[in-house]
């Protein structure tokens, strides 16, 4: 029953009329209290939003750790002129962005739970970020970062996995980088082999400056990365200076990655030392009577960009 009201009704009259109007509406519109489960579902839903976004945030963290670690393995000296260009390229911006967005959603979800508004912003943000980072680190150690990156790369055309990114970075003969496998069926000589890159192009690879370990890796039949120089004079000749395992076939522990990085660096340092060694050898030939067969030529590897960068750092 709606009672018309004048502009300044006596208070009691106003009270009565509102009460009547409310009961009238309840009766006419069959207004009923909503069921308990509606509120339970709402509250649980908000907790689920929080939990879901925290778990996704953990996955983002795991991939962040994985991609950062693998880019750390790809020592920037081999590919970049300075640390800044490396840092900009290596920064997994997409995952950092995803993490930030997820944390904002998680915080909103937690605030929207029944008593969430009582929590301080620091607690809301801190618990979401803390839980995601902790779970992400655990997930990263368990190999989830590698797995999720692979899955996304496989099923999402929009996403470039770390393996695909590395493939693009290393399949660049003009820049002195190749990725592929040795063709063991077409051995040419002790110092030359046939190498098939990831695009299927066959190269004659000069292995004269490779260390025994590099040659073992080449002969392993596994996909490897080769650092060297494409010889302009002969279009299919690639002079190899270092061979590195393809580390993106499975998840590796940080310890293994660090060991590989050290090996990589040692190899570059060794080539960086070569000019001085060569000079001594020339002097031996000129004044010490070395045989013509052992006459050294200036080595290619000492001149490649990665080695030059290392040399500059040594100075």
């Amino acid at each position: 029953m709606n009672t018309p009201m004048n502009s300044t009704p006596p208070h009691n009259q106003s009270d009565t009329s509102v009460k009547d109007r409310v009961f009238s509406q309840i009766t006419e519109q069959h207004v009923q209290p909503r069921a308990c489960y509606v509120y339970w579902c709402q509250n649980s839903g908000m907790w689920l939003v929080w939990l879901g976004t925290v778990l996704l945030g953990a996955l983002a963290t795991a991939v962040l750790v994985f991609t950062s670690t693998y880019r750390y393995y790809d020592i920037y000296e081999a590919m970049h002129d300075n640390f800044f260009t490396f840092f900009v390229q290596a920064l997994p911006i997409i995952w950092i962005g995803a993490f930030v967005v997820l944390m904002l959603v998680a915080a909103r979800g937690l605030r929207a739970t029944r008593r969430g508004y009582r929590l301080s912003p620091w607690l809301v943000g801190g618990s979401s970020v803390g839980a995601s980072v902790l779970l992400g680190l655990i997930g990263s150690m368990a190999g989830f970062g590698f797995w999720f990156d692979q899955v996304l790369g496989t099923y999402s055309p929009m996403y470039q996995s770390q393996a695909e990114r590395e493939q693009v970075l290393w399949q660049n003969p003009a820049e002195g980088r190749l990725i592929g496998t040795m063709d063991t069926t077409a051995v040419q000589s002790d110092s030359h082999i046939t190498f098939v890159d990831s695009l299927g192009v066959a190269w004659t690879m000069d292995t004269s400056e490779l260390r025994p370990r590099d040659k073992e890796l080449l002969a392993s039949d596994q996909q490897v990365r080769v650092l060297g120089r494409e010889m302009i004079a002969k279009s299919d000749l690639f002079h190899a200076c270092g061979v590195f395992p393809w580390m993106l076939d499975q998840s590796h522990k940080l310890k293994n990655l660090s060991a590989e990085r050290q090996t990589h660096m040692d190899s570059l340092y060794q080539h960086a030392d070569t000019p001085a060694t060569r000079l001594q050898e020339f002097e031996q030939v000129a004044f010490g009577g070395a045989s013509a067969d052992n006459e050294p030529s200036m080595k290619v590897c000492a001149e490649i960009a990665a080695v030059r960068r290392v040399s500059d750092k040594m100075r």
Partner: peptide
């Protein structure tokens, strides 16, 4: 401010309260 508006808003408030009685957090 307007008394009629107040009554309308009060009516909405009480209907909302009634509808959400089960959502009242006893804490």
């Amino acid at each position: 401010r307007n008394v009629e508006d107040q009554s309308d808003v009060l009516q909405d408030i009480f209907i909302k309260v009634y509808r959400n009685l089960n959502g009242f957090d006893t804490g």
